[in-house]
Amino acid sequence: MSNGMTPIVKTITGWVKGFILVFGIYIVLYGHLTPGGGFAGGVIIAMTFVLITLAFGKDEALKRFRIGIASELDSVGALMFLVIALLGIAGGLGGTFFTNFIAKSNPGEPYSLMSAGTILLSNIAIALKVGSSLFLVFILLVMTKVLYREPGEKP
């Protein structure tokens, strides 16, 4: 498995992986205008690296997305979402948790990318969180190969 699958799968994966990543980022950024959002886009971003893992083996995927970085991005996404919520109290007009302070203070033009204030930032935070954590779980399941030995049994 460390060498990956056949050359056919490797070539096709090399062609489509960039498109899948861009599509995931599109789903995240335009979540407030079209169907989708942070969760779906984050899973698609994680699927890009899952596809690389399946086609090229885990070493190739870990070269692009190291476990330490995935773990940090996971925490950064969760913290970023909380900070956005707390900024609603600190800099908000109504002063409640999760106040959309950007859209209330200077509303953007409707149907444009910058129209929704904190919704776009929350989508990005959730995408970071979901994408990195799902990739982390998949790569850990791939890496761990477990054999069980009874007490006293020879290895």
Binding site: H32, L33, G37, N100, I119
Partner: peptide
């Protein structure tokens, strides 16, 4: 909210 997608407006 400024979000055209009402589902995202409710969720976030």
């Amino acid at each position: 909210t400024g979000a055209a997608n009402i589902v995202t407006a409710v969720l976030l």
